[in-house]
Design a protein around this nucleic acid. Structure first.
Length: 456
RNA sequence: GGCGACGUAGCCAAGUGGUCUAAGGCAGAGGUUUGCAAAACCUCCAUUCGGCGGUUCGAAUCCGCCCGUCGCCUCCA
């Protein structure tokens, strides 16, 4: 397949270097509930993973949790909890949110605080190589020496000179140059702290990802992913320290970045506070609708979070769901050949994961199934294919669960009353029952074979 | 200020040199079906791709300028 890489700024043919496709995706910092922007990124890489498996590859995907940083420390202090407790709370919340979005778990979900030995080995190695140095003011921090890498800036397209001049970067004491970044941060009294050759401290943000990628996936990984906002400085720094440490280039063969979700004209982010949590979104919309909303736009494009537009996806999801489960008289002796649809689906996905087109193919197949229903064609094969393709996008095509109101038995009972009323030509009574059920989120369809119902 | 992305029908959104008089979804109009609906099906719904120039036999697609929106440069998926 073709994949766009931020490093080369073009689409290239992707083949894994080894037997399995290795993917490292930057995960969340466990200081807050996940928002829909995190869901966007998670869904994109979930679909990439699912598609690669659909194509027959074995995939090993690692996604970390940054479970120690300033915000977690602050949050723990505010709530009177330990940093571990705060982190654990949001890790569990993340898993629940992702499960409900039908995002499959990664192969591994390592945490920064559980990888301290690997992180320390890497920092020590970088110091030995002259790539890093303990803070010049003896604070106990360790910094990476950016000017030691003449290629620094190649991922984000930044000029090293400009960065070294400290354009809009505050110079910290103890740094040789403004662009140098922390590999190890000395801890202040009362803060969580791990022992190191330089004194008590904690890992800098970037080093954890390098260490985990190396530990779990090796010196060169196939795909490194994350949101576009991570390109600089996070991924730029990961790249330089990883290639410096291992001497192996490239650190990642493809850099895949998803576009950012916006709300009210700005990027959805913690610092701006303009966010909608995954949980809030799931309270109003089904996972299929949320995923379809994300996937009807290309993953590299920015997407504006808009409630009304997600609502329209709910109706669109229903269209697919019904086509996947309609029944046919199957008396024509013909059936629908799904092969051309599968081909078009694959063709779309092969082109840098063009999910909008892939989804359009599924809609075309749904249309063909509905036509086939009217013509009395055999549908099972086409419907099975449709479910297979939908599953590659992580769509369940399942009915939303009963939202408290009426149980299935209640619905069946109301339906029986309505059937009796219709038989008696008492359409007023029949329509009243229908209206009542619609209020409860149950839609009826009267057909030649009787009335079928579904939840919306 | 530096670097980068984007602007396609009422809305969302693919398409990036000819098969585009532009996919798909939602909304809308007429019809079939139905006790009436709903769903489904049939027909219709951008001669046009932010604006102005240019390159080309040919541009939504390439180039230039302008207008508008957004991202990164500081923690952020």
């Amino acid at each position: 397949m073709k994949l766009y890489s931020t490093l080369t700024r073009d689409k290239r043919d992707f083949e894994p270097a080894g037997d399995a496709v290795t993917i490292y995706v930057c995960g969340i910092t466990t200081s807050n509930s996940s928002h829909v922007g995190h869901a966007l990124s998670a869904v994109v890489f979930d679909v990439l993973h699912r598609y690669l498996e659909f194509r027959g590859y074995t995939v090993r995907r690692v996604q970390n949790f940054t479970d120690i940083d300033d915000k977690i420390i602050a949050s723990a202090r505010d709530q009177g909890l330990s940093t571990e407790e705060v982190a654990e709370k949001y890790v569990q919340e993340f898993f629940r949110d992702m499960d409900d979005l039908n995002v499959r778990r990664a192969t591994e979900h390592p945490r920064a605080t559980e990888e301290i030995p690997a992180i320390l080995r890497m920092i020590e190695g970088l110091i030995e190589q002259g790539r890093a140095y303990p803070a010049t003011d003896n604070s106990g921090s360790v910094y990476f020496r950016v000017k030691s890498d003449p290629e620094y800036g190649k991922l984000s397209g930044r000029s090293v000179d400009e960065l070294l001049e400290g354009v809009r970067i505050d110079v910290e004491p103890g740094k040789e140059a403004p662009a140098d970044f922390a590999l190890w941060k000395s801890s202040k009294p009362g803060e969580p702290s791990w022992d190191s050759p330089w004194g008590g401290g904690r890992p800098g943000w970037h080093i954890e990802c390098s260490a985990m990628a190396l530990e779990y996936l090796g010196e060169t990984i196939d795909i490194h992913g994350g949101g576009l906002d991570l390109v600089f400085p996070h991924h730029e720094n990961e790249l330089t320290q990883s290639e410096s440490f291992t001497g192996q280039k490239p650190f990642a063969r493809f850099w895949v970045h998803n576009g950012l979700l916006r709300l009210d004209g700005a990027k959805m982010s913690k610092s701006l506070g303009n966010l909608v949590t995954v949980r809030e979104a799931l309270e109003s919309y089904s996972a299929d609708a949320i995923r379809m909303y994300i996937l009807t736009s290309h993953y590299r494009s920015p997407l504006i979070y808009d409630q009304d537009n997600i609502g329209t996806q709910e109706r669109a999801a229903r269209r697919l769901r019904q086509a996947a489960s309609v029944t046919s008289r199957a008396d024509s002796g013909d059936s629908i050949d799904p092969a051309p649809f599968r081909e078009r689906f694959v063709e779309a996905m092969e082109d840098d994961l063009n999910t909008p087109q892939a989804l359009a193919v599924i809609f075309d197949l749904a249309h063909e199934i509905n036509r086939g229903r009217d013509a009395g064609h055999e549908l099972a094969g086409a419907q099975a294919e449709m479910r297979t393709l939908a599953d590659v996008l992580g769509l369940t095509l399942a009915e939303p669960a009963s939202k408290g109101g009426l149980s299935d038995e209640d619905v069946e009972a109301r339906l029986a009353s309505r059937a009796q009323a219709r038989a008696n030509q008492d359409f007023a009574a029949a329509d009243a029952i229908r209206d009542e059920l619609i209020e409860a989120g149950v839609v009826l369809e009267d057909g030649p074979g009787g009335t079928i119902w579904s939840r919306v």
